[in-house]
């Protein structure tokens, strides 16, 4: 049973109220002189910097640049990791062969690949996309493999009885069966991809929210650093809400409800 509308409105209002409280606490602490000069900007400075960045069009360009890199890295990782994860999930031999190596690479921080990314891909978008790809690829392989390996055997026996073969089993049994877990994995992965964009844009690019933060830090513009941080956080929340909405789709809701 879904909560009544009044309860839903309160649930939506509570995070906004908390945000207002945090803002008030930040402002009060700044007015009380609790932060050494130049370390934390005042909220109104951040607000003015935000308006300036929006009016100049720079913030919009940086958002588009970061979304482009995250989009390419993330979609590329999803398109390659999910099929590989399905193979791993369905074949014990492939799993035994590849799993140790996937875990090996998964535990390496994507930042460790930065020198190789620059040597292999030069400057511009490709090295940043590569870093985002690496940050999400191995996670998605593991999550897909775990979900595919956990599909009850009885589903495949039923499929055999029903005369399903090859691709039909993949598209009518395996994929629908793992969709709820897969969507959760994709939701976690988009958060990671968005988190890594700052590190990825430290290298060889001159646009994006990560670059905005690094560039502002170099110019000691802490107000712009906070503008970049708040924008990244807000887009992260928006992406998460988008994935949460997708989890309400009829084809996956069963995974949450039952």
């Amino acid at each position: 049973m879904s909560p009544p509308p009044s309860s839903r409105a309160i649930h939506r209002l509570l995070p906004v109220l908390l945000g207002g409280l945090l803002l008030a606490a930040w402002w009060a602490a700044w007015l009380a002189g609790m932060f050494p000069t130049g370390t934390v900007p005042a909220p109104d400075e951040v607000g003015r910097a935000f308006v300036g960045e929006v009016r100049s069009g720079r913030l919009g360009e940086d958002i588009v640049a970061s979304l482009y890199r995250v989009g390419f890295g993330y979609v590329g990782a999803s398109l390659t990791a999910i099929p590989l994860g399905l193979v791993l999930g369905r074949s014990a031999a492939v799993r035994a062969t590849l799993l140790p190596w996937i875990n090996f690479f998964r535990t390496l921080s994507p930042i460790a690949w930065i020198p190789f990314a620059i040597i292999w891909f030069g400057i511009g978008d490709p090295p940043a996309i590569f870093i985002i790809f690496l940050a999400t690829f191995f996670q998605l392989v593991l999550a897909t493999a775990a979900a595919a390996a956990a599909v009850p055997k009885v589903y495949y026996r039923v499929a055999e009885d029903l005369g399903l073969r090859g691709d039909e089993i993949l598209f009518e049994v395996t994929l629908p069966a793992i969709l709820p877990q897969l969507l959760t994995a994709l939701r976690v992965a988009i958060g990671v991809a968005w988190m890594v964009v700052v590190a990825a844009e430290m290298i060889a690019v001159r646009s994006g929210l990560g670059f905005l933060i690094i560039d502002a830090r170099n110019g000691l513009r802490m107000d712009l650093v906070v503008v970049g941080m708040i924008t990244i956080g807000a887009i992260g929340v928006a992406l998460d809400v988008l994935f949460a909405r997708m989890a309400q789709a009829r084809s996956v809701r069963w995974g949450v409800e039952r």
Partner: peptide, 14 residues
Amino acid sequence: ASRTIYQDGGLYPW
């Protein structure tokens, strides 16, 4: 051809 009915969980939940 044959069809099998299982104790529980043979239906596709999606």
